[in-house]
């Protein structure tokens, strides 16, 4: 699980993670254009998996074990979380409808290096509240990345997200956190989406983080489906999720999960 100390990466290792991230960004771009009313989340999952394997990668989410030993390992290459689903939605027969929002989270292992990224997309036309939720969450991730500078602290990242989201009148999910990433998907440190500036471990060059604000319109409460994975808002309100894998470098934050 997530324990131990933060393991900074050498510049060569960061490059290897960026290569993994490029495959992941390609997979997400591919499923992004496939998102439209009538498509099932299972179809999106299949597209992502074949893209990743065609590019020499392994979908890292398959077989991830839940904290609860009674829950089956995660079956998909992507997490597909529609509307009030926050994260960890299992892809399958669910059909996208006009007006839905869908959070797509995916991870790749390439040459032993992990990358992890997510984005929330509109299916057709969505209402203004939903659209604002996506804008705020996307902006929160951008702010968080801007705060990820060498010499700063983990708390700076959380504080940046918290300030922007709470000033927008939306709610941060506290039940789940971002994480260090590298040879394994989940490494130290935890990266909460709230915090105090200057709090938590210092950010040193070579630290690689998966930063992932999860934002709800309503309550911060989380309930789980009987599948043991799908996490939903307890009041049924919409939830959005954006994530990038980011390296702290001397030259500032570097997003590793972007197509070039």
């Amino acid at each position: 699980m997530m324990s131990g100390s933060i393991k900074p990466k050498t510049p060569e290792q960061v490059e290897a993670m960026a290569a993994s991230g490029r495959v992941l960004a390609g997979a997400l771009d591919k499923i992004e254009v496939a998102v439209s009313p009538g498509v099932t989340t299972g179809e999106l999952d299949a597209i992502a998996e074949s893209f990743i394997r065609d590019h020499g990668g392994i979908p890292s989410f398959q077989g991830v074990r839940a904290a609860d030993p009674g829950v089956k390992p995660f079956p998909g290459a992507i997490c597909a979380s529609i509307n009030d689903a926050i994260v960890h939605g299992i892809p399958g027969s669910a059909v996208l409808r006009e007006g839905d929002i869908i959070s797509l989270d995916c991870g790749v292992i390439l040459d032993g290096w992990h990358s992890d990224s997510a984005r929330t997309l509109a299916v057709g036309e969505i209402d203004p509240d939903a659209s604002r939720l996506l804008d705020v969450t996307r902006a929160a991730l951008a702010e968080a990345i801007r705060a990820s500078v060498a010499g700063g602290h983990i708390g700076d990242i959380g504080a940046a997200v918290q300030k922007l989201v709470e000033e927008a009148g939306l709610t941060i999910v506290r039940r789940f956190v971002g994480h260090g990433i590298g040879r394994t998907m989940h490494e130290s440190p935890q990266v909460p989406n709230f915090g105090r500036p200057g709090g938590g471990p210092e950010l040193i060059p070579g630290t690689t983080l998966a930063i992932e604000p999860m934002v709800n319109i309503g309550s911060a409460g989380v309930v789980f489906d009987t599948d043991g994975w799908t996490a939903r808002t307890d009041d049924g309100s919409l939830s959005a999720h954006f994530e990038h894998t980011v390296a702290i470098t001397h030259a500032g934050p570097r997003v590793l999960t972007e197509a070039v």
Partner: peptide
């Protein structure tokens, strides 16, 4: 894929 937060 966000893990649950560890809370001491």
């Amino acid at each position: 894929m966000p893990p649950p937060r560890n809370q001491k």
